[in-house]
Computed example of a mutant assay.
Amino acid sequence: MIHPGDAALGPAPDGYRSFRRSIPLAHSFDPQDAALDRAFERARAMLQSWGPQLGAGMRLEFATAPDAEDGFAPLPAPSVGLEGRLISRVAGVVPLRAPFRVVAADFDSTDHAGYAYETLPGHPERGREAFYVTRGEGLVEFTVMAFSQPALWYSRLGGPVTRIIQNRYTNKYLLAMAVSPR
């Protein structure tokens, strides 16, 4: 069976590196255990409110609606075509703005939920990243998967450091989904 994140990402183009990392959010020997449903619904809600990115310490920017009070609007749920910017600080100091566009968003299925986005010009990497929670026989699992290659001079120059930073953020995404209040 193909993972819904694989379908959202599509095949990795030649020359791109890819990865997939998962963490169990709930496990039970009884597939009817209500705790599995609670864990799945909690994870779905977190994904709809950008939980992995916010939990990793990132900020998100979206174009504000003209009627937004004081220029602030609630974060929109991931939806196909939505564009925004992830904002983080490299080494806690250097601000990094990474534009993206959501290419897949699926929150209506009974056994999976998530979204995928592609990078836009100005992002240090070129590629796609997907965030999905799945529910199977006695297991609720969160998965982050991506394919990418350096897009800007400093990400190409950074080589192994760029991969270390990407791995660090992947760990933060997984941890954010695993330790949030139940």
Rank of each mutant, 00 (worst) to 15 (best):
V103M: 07
M58E: 14
A35M: 09
G159S: 14
G127C: 06
W50C: 00
L174I: 05
N171L: 15
E125S: 01
S155Y: 01
A63E: 15
I87S: 05
G158L: 12
R168L: 13
G159E: 12
R89Y: 11
A26D: 02
V93G: 13
N167Q: 15
R89Q: 11
G15E: 03
R163I: 07
V161E: 05
E129P: 01
V179E: 14
G10L: 00
V133S: 10
M1N: 13
F29Q: 08
S180D: 06
A98P: 06
A113R: 00
Y16D: 01
F131Q: 03
E118G: 14
P13G: 04
A8Y: 09
A113F: 10
F62K: 07
M58T: 04
A104G: 05
P181Q: 14
Q166C: 10
Y16L: 02
G122E: 09
F131N: 05
P124A: 11
E137Q: 12
S49Y: 03
F131T: 00
S148V: 03
A68Q: 06
T110Y: 03
A12N: 08
F107Q: 11
A73I: 01
V80M: 14
T162E: 03
V102Q: 03
E41I: 03
F107K: 02
G55L: 05
Y169H: 12
F72G: 05
S148E: 05
P66A: 15
H3E: 13
T170E: 01
E61C: 08
A39D: 02
H3M: 07
W50R: 02
F62E: 10
A12M: 04
D14V: 11
E141Q: 13
Q32H: 09
A116Q: 01
R42S: 09
Q32M: 07
P66T: 10
G10R: 06
D14K: 13
D106K: 12
F147C: 09
P99Q: 08
V179P: 01
V161L: 15
G55W: 01
T134Q: 09
R85E: 10
L152C: 00
P52G: 00
D108F: 14
A105H: 04
G92V: 07
I164Y: 07
F142Y: 15
L174C: 03
E41Y: 06
R182T: 11
P124Y: 02
L36K: 06
R97C: 04
D108Q: 13
S180M: 12
S22P: 08
R89L: 09
S180A: 15
T162K: 13
S109E: 11
T134C: 13
V133C: 10
P124C: 08
H3A: 06
Q32V: 00
G114S: 13
V103A: 03
R59A: 15
M1Y: 11
L47N: 08
F72H: 15
L86F: 09
L96C: 14
K172N: 11
R38F: 07
L9F: 07
F19M: 09
G51Q: 06
P160M: 14
M1F: 11
S88H: 00
G92F: 11
S109M: 01
A176K: 00
L174N: 03
G158N: 04
A34S: 15
G136L: 08
F72C: 13
D6F: 03
L36R: 06
